[in-house]
Computed example of a mutant assay.
Amino acid sequence: MARVLIIEDDEVTAREIATELSGHGMQVEWVGSGQDGLDRAATGRYDVITLDRMLPGLDGIEVIGRLRERGVQTPVLMISALSDVDDRIRGLRAGGDDYLTKPFAPDEMAARVEVLLRRHDTGQTRSQLKVADLELDLLSRTARRGEAELNLLPTEFRLLEFLMRHSGQVLTRMMLFETVWGLNFDPGTNLIDVHIGRLRRKVDPAGSEPLIHTVRGSGYRLGKHV
């Protein structure tokens, strides 16, 4: 049974997360402050951590930073009322694995936790991501498909990183919009489709096996064709 640590100072939100994850067969524990969360998480006995961005005492980014300094690599889903892109980037660069904006749908939160659990089981590295012959280096901020280096704009890099972190999974437009751009989803926008189109032309040039796939009516998936 997967063990999840919830670090959240709002009791209502914590109970909502705990109820949903318990319903998915996970064992959950809850603490209400950054310091208590750090002390628990530092034991390394959890499979995933959900972490509130704004906490009394140590905030979420400080908690992640101190965990990574101690060598604790437990996957972290940061949950935040802040929706600006810069804060999302700070959270991911500090060592967070995913970032979800409040208010959130409980089933989407649980889906993201399950993705982190699967990735943790495969031992995927944090600094380099690889899917087929596509490689992303998070430290040098470079991308390569086979022998060809990809010239990606910052937003394209973040979009590809999110797709690769969740390779094989169908990612909805809402998940992409809120994670990469840090904005509430607008069902009338074509922003996602435009950026996916540009990214696809770079990642999947003519003659190569396509890795970015459109799942009609659902979203997008990165990986080999199945």
Rank of each mutant, 00 (worst) to 15 (best):
I7H: 06
V31E: 09
G44E: 02
L55N: 10
V48C: 09
M54F: 07
L92A: 03
T142F: 02
L5K: 03
R118S: 13
T13C: 12
D193I: 00
G60V: 01
R126V: 13
L159P: 03
A2Y: 10
L129Q: 04
D186Y: 04
V63K: 07
V76R: 04
L163F: 05
M78E: 08
D204P: 00
L38N: 04
L67S: 11
L134N: 05
E29F: 13
G219M: 13
Q27V: 13
V76W: 00
V194A: 05
R45C: 12
M54G: 02
G188T: 08
T172N: 02
V48Q: 03
L211W: 00
L160D: 07
R3A: 10
R145P: 05
D39N: 07
E29Q: 14
H195K: 11
R112P: 05
R216P: 03
S140Q: 10
K224V: 13
V76Y: 04
G37P: 03
L117R: 08
G217S: 11
K130E: 10
A111K: 09
G23C: 09
G223C: 10
A148F: 08
G123R: 14
E178H: 02
R88A: 13
L38K: 04
P154Y: 02
R221I: 11
S33W: 05
T214P: 01
H195W: 07
E108R: 15
H120Y: 12
M174A: 14
D39R: 08
G71A: 06
F162L: 14
D36G: 12
G146Y: 13
G168W: 11
R90S: 06
F104K: 05
R66C: 06
R40K: 14
L150E: 01
D107E: 13
D86Q: 14
F162T: 10
D133H: 09
R40I: 00
E11D: 11
L116M: 14
H225V: 03
L171H: 08
R144M: 05
L152I: 09
M175Y: 02
T142V: 03
M175N: 07
L92I: 12
R145N: 00
G219T: 06
G182Q: 06
G65R: 15
L222P: 01
L150A: 09
L150C: 06
S127K: 12
G207K: 08
I192V: 15
V194P: 03
L38Q: 04
R40Q: 10
M109K: 04
R144D: 00
D121R: 15
A105H: 11
K202G: 00
M1T: 15
R40P: 03
V131P: 01
R88L: 07
L55E: 04
A148S: 14
A143Y: 02
G95A: 02
G57S: 04
H166T: 06
M109S: 03
E149T: 14
R90D: 12
Q128R: 14
E108Y: 11
E16T: 15
S208C: 07
S140N: 07
P205S: 08
F162Y: 10
E147W: 11
V4K: 12
G25K: 09
M174R: 14
D97Q: 10
T172L: 05
V4Y: 06
E114D: 12
R173G: 02
T101E: 01
S140P: 01
L116I: 09
N190I: 08
E114C: 01
G182A: 07
M26V: 02
A148H: 14
G71S: 09
